[in-house]
Computed example of a mutant assay.
Amino acid sequence: MRETHGNMMDTERRIQEAQQKMAETHAEIMTAQKNIQENLADINEKIKLLEQKDEMLEARRGKDVIAFRAHKVADKSVADNQVFVFTKVVLNEGNGYSSTNGYFTAPISGIYFFNSQLCGMENRYIAYAIVSQGDTRSSGLFMPYKLGTCTSFSGAVRMRIGERAWVTINSNGSPSSDLIYEDSREWNYFSGFLIR
């Protein structure tokens, strides 16, 4: 009987120890579960912040893209220092270029790169320029050696919002109606884009 009683006491002690270990394990599991839930809440909060930043970047992405390209001169008989108007607009992201008056108006402040090509009549000098706010930013003198020979010119310009840029020529005494040539292969154009 003593032996049986001793075995029962030993078994009861082991059961109590097992119950104690189970209670400790249960507490550890509950703590781990709480930590996991807190970490998940933190991760979900960070995901929401990243999604908001992504939406903001996506909304901004289209607004910072400023680029245009237009060709086909409205009037080949331009007077000295008259703005060339290029009527066929093939690109106008940011709506900065006007095919009505030939001006590019900066929708946002920044550094812009402009490029233009003019094609001339044979043996007629053309003094060309890209102008911004009345200041010449790129210029040169060109005399086509044959009909339809073209020259291109470019320049980078720092502009504030609302400032304008355009292409113009000086005929250097030649009749202005005899200066510019254009056909289906030789295009006169004006293009530009925001660098930053």
Rank of each mutant, 00 (worst) to 15 (best):
E28R: 14
S184C: 07
P144Q: 02
M56L: 01
Q19L: 12
Q19K: 15
K48L: 04
I169N: 03
S132F: 07
N172A: 08
I111Q: 05
Y181A: 00
T31L: 10
P144E: 03
L50F: 05
G62V: 12
N92Y: 09
Y112L: 03
Y103Q: 12
T87F: 04
G134L: 09
R14A: 15
R61W: 12
I195K: 08
W187G: 03
M143L: 04
L57A: 11
A27D: 14
L91P: 00
D10W: 14
S174C: 09
A74H: 03
Q133D: 05
L49C: 07
E3L: 10
Q37M: 11
K76Y: 10
G96P: 01
M9E: 14
D75M: 08
I15H: 13
R185D: 12
D75T: 03
F104Y: 05
F142G: 02
I130N: 00
S177T: 13
G96V: 00
W187N: 06
A79Q: 13
A67N: 04
E163V: 13
H71L: 08
D178I: 01
G102V: 03
I15G: 12
K72W: 01
R160A: 14
P175G: 10
A74S: 09
C119A: 02
K46R: 05
E51Q: 14
F153M: 03
F190I: 12
V90M: 07
Y103D: 06
I108H: 03
D135Y: 13
I66T: 04
Q20G: 15
G62M: 08
S191G: 15
T100N: 07
P107N: 11
A18E: 12
L91I: 09
G140Y: 02
Y145I: 00
T31D: 13
H71I: 04
K72R: 12
P175N: 15
F193Q: 07
K46F: 04
Q33A: 13
E3W: 02
E38K: 11
G62D: 11
A70S: 11
I195L: 15
M143T: 00
E163N: 10
E3A: 12
Q37I: 06
E17N: 15
Q37S: 12
W166K: 09
T87W: 02
I180E: 02
I43N: 02
N81F: 09
L118Y: 01
F68Y: 02
I15P: 04
